[in-house]
Structure formats: structure tokens, C-alpha cells
Design a protein around this nucleic acid. Structure first.
Length: 278
DNA sequence: CTACGAACCTGCCTGC
DNA sequence: TGCAGGCAGGTTCGTA
């Protein structure tokens, strides 16, 4: 489901609704076999802890606890969070229920529920500011200044796979998934199949800026709702309506009106305009 | 070290 | 109507 804009928006919406700090009364895992085994044996370490902050790193959402411990979560392809009263009936594929401490004036218990049909998401509990192994070896955040044309140009030399694979490689830059890779390449007028070695310094700079702009635009428009991505409130994003190439095979390019093409690259559907992108 | 395909899993859509 | 096949926003693993 989610790439950087969608994950960032989910994190922001959770922060808004949680009114941190917020105490976890109880956490229940109803199944244990997501991408990694659920931290069910650490349940007692999570309960009664206070959430003080939520952070995003790459596509991970980190629940920072007052003790210094962290609950690391990932939405996979189809993960979602929602708030629900205790009287609301559970849905199919609800796997985690976090019961939050009631607050005045309502005094009623609110559950924060994680649902994930395909179960590609995951949860990991990290003690005492220890960093999850999954967060090591990650490249820079695309919206940070560290991700610059100079940085990216220097990385191009050691890779032989096409440029699209490179911008989806989390060692190079995090958060760019299959939608935004195609969209950013279109914005930069660069073919997804281009060999990184054959890119100029200017093109590297253009692509970096295109990635930043595309992600920022998507954030402004509430992310891309293609299939089941929804806001925490259940609302859909709007950025899918602004996609230039993704999911537009056979439709006219919004710039030159020629047909958008689709081809599989490294196992992923890749959309581009052969006329605009060289 | 990189590169590629397969694997994980459910649901939805298409075509026969 | 049913059923098989293909495909989906992510990541890791095994094999070249």
C-alpha cells in the first residue's frame, strides 16, 4: 500500500489523534505470523508504557516509548491503522489491538487497531534505544538535504541495474516505491531503463529534485489511494488523480498525448512515456 | 559486492 | 456461475 507520503501521512494522523503522551493499557496480538513473528512474548514489556512520540524512518513507523524502548512497525502492502470504540465489531484481518487509556471528558476506552490482509507488515520491539537491525544500512531520507545531486551522482557509478531499480534501492535512498519511482522518472524526463553510468551530473540533479517534488506534491494531496490505502480516518488520498504515468498504460501522455507504455522491470510494473523520457 | 527471481499472503479483476 | 490465472503500494532471501 504505502510509500513515503502514505506512511508519513499515517504517522501524522496518528500523532494528531493520539494527543501524546498517551498510555497503552493493553496490547493484543491476534495472530503471530506476519512478515516476522509478532513480539507476543514482549507484550508485558509494552503494556503500561507511555507513547511519547511517533517517528517515521523510511517506510517504518516508530512508536517511541517513555522508557526509551521502541515499537517498530511497518505497513507492508496492505497495512492500516484505525481508531475504534470498544463497541465496534472487529474486522477481518485485524491483527493488533492497542487499548489506550481513556481521557477526560469522554472516559471511554479507544482502541488503536492494526489491520493487514496480506500480512506483509510487521512489528518489532526494541529495548533501550537499541536500533532495529532493519533500520541499519538504510540510505538517506529523500526529503533531507543529505539526499543531494552530488550524493546521488557519486552513487551512480557502482550500479549496473537500470535507474528505476536504483531509486527503489533503500541503500541509496529510502521511501521511493513502485509508484513514485515511475512518477519521478517521468517528471525528470528520464527513461526508467537508462543505465546509471550513462547519466550526466545534471540529470542526476534533476532526478533528485523530481523525487523530492513528487513526494512533496503527494503529501500535499493526501497520498495515493490505488487500492486499499486510506487515511486513518478512512478518507482516500487524491494524488492518484495526478499520476502522470502510473497505472495509465495505453492512455495518452498528459504532456505529449502519445500512449503510456508498461513493462516489467525487476519484477515490478513500470510505466513511462517513451516520447518524453529518454 | 551487485543482480535477479522467487517467496511471503489475500483479494480482486479478467477471461474462458 | 465458477474457476484458474495474473496482478497488486514491500522487503528479504537464495542463487548466480
Amino acid at each position: 500500500m504505502p510509500e513515503l507520503p502514505e506512511v508519513e501521512l499515517v504517522k501524522r494522523q496518528l500523532v494528531e489523534s493520539l494527543e501524546l503522551p498517551q498510555k497503552i493499557l493493553k496490547i493484543e496480538f491476534s495472530r503471530f505470523d506476519l512478515r516476522n513473528p509478532m513480539p507476543r512474548n514482549q507484550k508485558h514489556l509494552i503494556q503500561n508504557q507511555v507513547i511519547v512520540a511517533l517517528e517515521r524512518r523510511a517506510k517504518y513507523i516508530l512508536f517511541k516509548l517513555a522508557s526509551g524502548d521502541t515499537l517498530v512497525t511497518h505497513l507492508g502492502m496492505t497495512g492500516s491503522w484505525r481508531f475504534a470504540g470498544t463497541n465496534e465489531s472487529p474486522q477481518k484481518h485485524d491483527h493488533v489491538v492497542i487499548q489506550l487509556e481513556p481521557r477526560p471528558p469522554s472516559e471511554s476506552v479507544i482502541n488503536l487497531i492494526y489491520k493487514d490482509p496480506r500480512r506483509f507488515g510487521f512489528f518489532e520491539f526494541c529495548k533501550n534505544n537499541q536500533q532495529s537491525a532493519l533500520l541499519k544500512n538504510l540510505g538517506p531520507e529523500p526529503l533531507n538535504s543529505e539526499f543531494s545531486g552530488a550524493y546521488f551522482y557519486a552513487k551512480l557509478k557502482s550500479f549496473k541495474s537500470p535507474i528505476k531499480s536504483l531509486i527503489m534501492n533503500s541503500k541509496i535512498v529510502v521511501g521511493v516505491g513502485n509508484i513514485y519511482a515511475s512518477e519521478a522518472l517521468f517528471a525528470a524526463k528520464i527513461s526508467p531503463f537508462r543505465q546509471p553510468l550513462r547519466m550526466t551530473k545534471q540529470q542526476a540533479e534533476d532526478l533528485v529534485q523530481a523525487i523530492k517534488n513528487t513526494l512533496k506534491q503527494s503529501l500535499l494531496f493526501g497520498g495515493s489511494s490505488i487500492d486499499d490505502y486510506k487515511h486513518v480516518s478512512g478518507k482516500s488520498g487524491e494524488f492518484q488523480n495526478l499520476h502522470q504515468v502510473y497505472n495509465r498504460e495505453g492512455l495518452g501522455c498528459k504532456v505529449c498525448e502519445r500512449n503510456i507504455k508498461k513493462k516489467t522491470l525487476a519484477g515490478r510494473s513500470t510505466y513511462w512515456c517513451p516520447n518524453c523520457q529518454k
